[in-house]
Design a protein around this nucleic acid. Structure first.
Lengths: 164, 164
DNA sequence: GGCGTCGGTGCATTTTTATGCTTCAATCCA
DNA sequence: TGGATTGAAGCATAAAAATGCACCGACGCC
């Protein structure tokens, strides 16, 4: 299982994608492919399509970008696939989870915070009042310390839990 | 010039699109077409593509959605087309602009606030510290009352200004 | 060491989206 | 009223993105 090794080619590539997309407008996958090639990363369009999807990037009139983390109850897809998506995202990105006061701080590899934050938002977990995703850190806000601890526990369970 | 009449078919359609997209996940334009047809609105895929672009909707793994209005200096496309886009957006959506204290309140038709807010964000206007888009209202925050008045004036100029 | 499993990627193809060009209806003058 | 102008929208097609399938290399287990 060649997976979340922090320096796997896959992860390097995704970091590069993230950096590119934040720096300049990237209008399509072919353009992205060229840019990556310039950075010595060769990959085909199919893989980029999958990367972009997995990273949660969105495509708008101005090219690809990170969606801002939305407030938890907002218009997101209501189907129950979100739970599965969350488990996936947690396994892929969550490195640590610590509760502090009424907050939970999650650490992720660089670039993982946004997609994970989005997955958490969409899952609309109880006790989670709001989500704030940075680059490699996510801050979850809960009502009080007890709620924060519950959230942390639940995330860790989900990550470790049910068979893949 | 069959344009921004508040009840033009075009505007009705766009409101319907907005409502649909907020209510459920719409994964592609064909699906959107079917949904609209169910609401008695017949339109082809090409027009939807243009609607979606003009409204500033983005497509992510979960379907189409409104991008959250970002803070003004954030990662957006840096090319100068933004200015033109802003003029377009203003003409399409801005109904009124009033300054109050250090703020400017813009009114738009229902559903116009998000796309216009985004256009304003991207244009990165001087004096604009932040933008908050609702459904038919946008709040711009400036440093002080004088700055707010300048912003309002500038927006009105842009809207009325240069030949189309 | 051989074997089965699994994730990741490429290739080929389908599906989805964007767009050039055309038509049509509404508006504005003269 | 007649003619010019303009924007919206359709049709056909090009461009871009998603995906089924196959392969390959890494790893765990026997």
């Amino acid at each position: 299982m060649p997976a979340a090794d922090p320096t796997s080619p896959r992860e390097r590539r995704r970091h590069a994608i993230l950096a590119l997309v934040q720096r300049r407008a990237v209008r399509n996958q072919e353009e992205l492919r060229t840019l990556l090639a310039g950075a010595g990363i060769d990959v085909n369009q199919a893989t980029l399509s999958r990367d972009l999807r997995d990273m949660g990037l969105v495509k708008g009139p101005g090219g690809y970008s990170l969606p801002a983390a939305a407030p938890p109850g907002s218009a997101a897809d209501p189907d129950s696939g979100t739970a599965i998506a969350l488990v996936h995202a947690l396994r892929e990105w969550m490195r640590t989870a610590e509760a502090a006061q009424n907050q939970v701080v999650l650490k992720t590899p660089v670039g993982g915070a946004q997609p994970l934050a989005i997955a958490i938002d969409r899952a609309d977990l109880p006790d989670v009042l709001g989500t704030l995703g940075g680059d490699d850190t996510i801050l979850l806000v809960a009502k009080d310390a007890a709620a924060a601890r519950r959230v942390r526990k639940r995330l860790l369970e989900l990550q470790g839990g049910a068979p893949r």
